[in-house]
Design a protein around this nucleic acid. Structure first.
Lengths: 143, 143
DNA sequence: TATTGTTATACTCTATAACTATA
DNA sequence: TATAGTTATAGAGTATAACAATA
């Protein structure tokens, strides 16, 4: 009946290993995991409210506030009140923030190649395509 | 330069969604996530020490003790001192524990099919094979 | 003295609830 | 009165350190 391990049982340790490998890279670029997650989310997607950003990255709206404070203090993001509704904060990457995000992502993906290097071109293509599709499904399934 | 999302950025939300979907199934079978993880680890692999089990599943040795207490009280595992070294506890699934583990896994994998159902046979085969291989790599990379 | 399992404590992360400022 | 953001508090989960039993 059971002819494969559980998806979660395979993916969970893998994610932990991927994140453990990311940590020193993030630290070298002056970012936390949540900080990097925010930069990825804002890249190309300026966001109108902090609550929307929090929901998009699966965080509590109270949880990201210290992260946003730090990113702003470091000059990675701009955050200013919406003139049309001064309760709302508009969020966007600064040029510097975009550069740091790019450099960090480059380093992370270089590290991740360690996992993919032994795959054939076609296995790699299929795996990444399917994974991307499942990730999009998970986004649409927020609960 | 960056032509794909980060592996971790794709997998992390996916794992969270998979685990969220598991939770009600586990509860219906009287198991916690750690309890189920222990049953999976013990299945076909009786283990000589609790510390070894903890390391295998990526947990702290102190963390699994309440889990083992509960599994033992529920009759899912046997735990008794090794006659050769009475400091050591031998751990093994009971018959009942094996049945519960099988039934739970069956239900979990049925739920997981939701993610895989739209894949072609060949995409499915490649994805699961590569994922399995990466999971094995992660096991060998414990830090 | 070293090791296995256990318990007690402290720490980190996260969520809940209360507060402010705008609308 | 309702909503966006913030702050304060409480809770869950985890790790660190001390302890008892056995070797």
């Amino acid at each position: 009946m059971v002819d494969r391990p559980d998806l979660a049982a395979m993916m969970h340790p893998l994610v932990r290993a991927l994140m453990a490998a990311e940590e020193p890279v993030l630290e070298a670029h002056g970012l936390t995991m949540w900080g990097y997650t925010v930069l990825l989310a804002l890249d190309g997607n300026p966001t109108r409210t902090q609550a929307a950003l929090a929901e998009r990255i699966g965080a509590d709206k109270t949880r990201i506030i210290p992260t946003l404070d730090k990113l702003e203090a470091d000059g990675f993001i701009d955050r200013y009140p919406d003139p049309d509704d001064r309760r709302v904060h508009l969020l966007a990457l600064t040029e510097h923030g975009g550069e740091v995000k790019d450099a960090t992502q480059e380093a992370i993906q270089t590290g991740e190649e360690r996992w993919l290097v032994d795959l054939s071109d076609s296995d790699r293509e299929v795996f990444l395509r399917v994974l991307h599709e499942l990730a999009r499904m998970a986004e649409r399934w927020p609960e």
